[in-house]
Amino acid sequence: MLIQAGVRPALGCLLRLAYRPEIEGRQNVPRTGPVILAANHLSALDSFLIPLAAPRPVAFLAKAEYFRRPGVTGALSRAFFTGMNAIPVHRTDHRAAQASLEAAREVLAAGRAFGIHPEGSRSRDGRLYRGRTGVAWLALATGAPVVPVAVLGTDRILPVGARLPRFGRIAVRFGQPLRFTQPPDGNANRARRLVTEEIMTAIQRLSGQEQAAGHAELPVQ
């Protein structure tokens, strides 16, 4: 338990010493209550960087396998991901997408912060891809505000396929919270798409990325 409790403070200190990240808009993240942090996705580092830059703990989803490894390595892995408030999910299950959203809704129902990458996968070319509507489903189902987040520079620090991080400049920008309500006409599919597009537009304004017309290719499970 002591190791788990010290993970976030220790990594935050290491991050500041090694990279001196530029962090903007932390005051835009509500200090209490449920909130969704919706961010672009350039690197595997993003899901760790955002909780370290945010003013409160942020839960992201993580593969359940990270919590099941045997031996000392497994114990350290569990302590690390638990200390980072990661939520284990079974991504190979045929109902994985809905199960992930239900896990996220439980986090928000408990008044916590939940982080999500609406693109669904890392961008391989630096562009911002079209968002998937799970983030809108969460926002409309829970009423939680959505804070758009832009992460910059992580694709140079840890590119796709790299094993060890490099040195470089990184930045995290938190935008103004967005609030959404269920549409009066009951057209849920249209509402989710419109909400998702508004969130992605807010992320793009923070990141300055070129927008791609389609969705990012999802990783093979």
Rank of each mutant, 00 (worst) to 15 (best):
N28P: 15
G168E: 12
A109F: 11
I203A: 03
F81R: 01
P55I: 03
V146K: 09
L37K: 04
I23F: 00
R20G: 09
S123N: 04
L152K: 12
E217I: 13
F80I: 12
D155L: 04
N85L: 00
P55T: 02
L218D: 12
P30C: 13
A213H: 14
A141F: 09
T181S: 15
R130P: 00
V149G: 08
V7F: 09
A99I: 07
R130D: 12
E24P: 00
A162T: 09
R179Q: 03
A213L: 11
A171W: 02
T73C: 00
A99L: 06
A18L: 11
Q211F: 10
R130H: 13
Q221N: 14
A139V: 07
M1L: 01
I36C: 13
A38Y: 09
A150K: 06
N187H: 00
R205T: 07
G131A: 12
A97V: 15
L164E: 02
L2I: 13
S77H: 08
A59R: 11
H94K: 13
R156G: 13
L194C: 08
L17Q: 02
I203C: 13
L101I: 14
V172F: 02
A213S: 13
I87R: 09
R68P: 07
E65N: 13
V149F: 07
V72N: 00
Q4E: 14
L101C: 08
R179L: 02
A104F: 05
L152T: 15
P55K: 04
A39Q: 09
A136V: 14
L194T: 07
N28V: 15
L206W: 12
L158T: 07
R179H: 10
T133Y: 01
F180S: 08
A64K: 11
R91G: 04
T92I: 12
A59S: 14
L15H: 06
F48P: 00
A59G: 03
Y19H: 11
R95W: 09
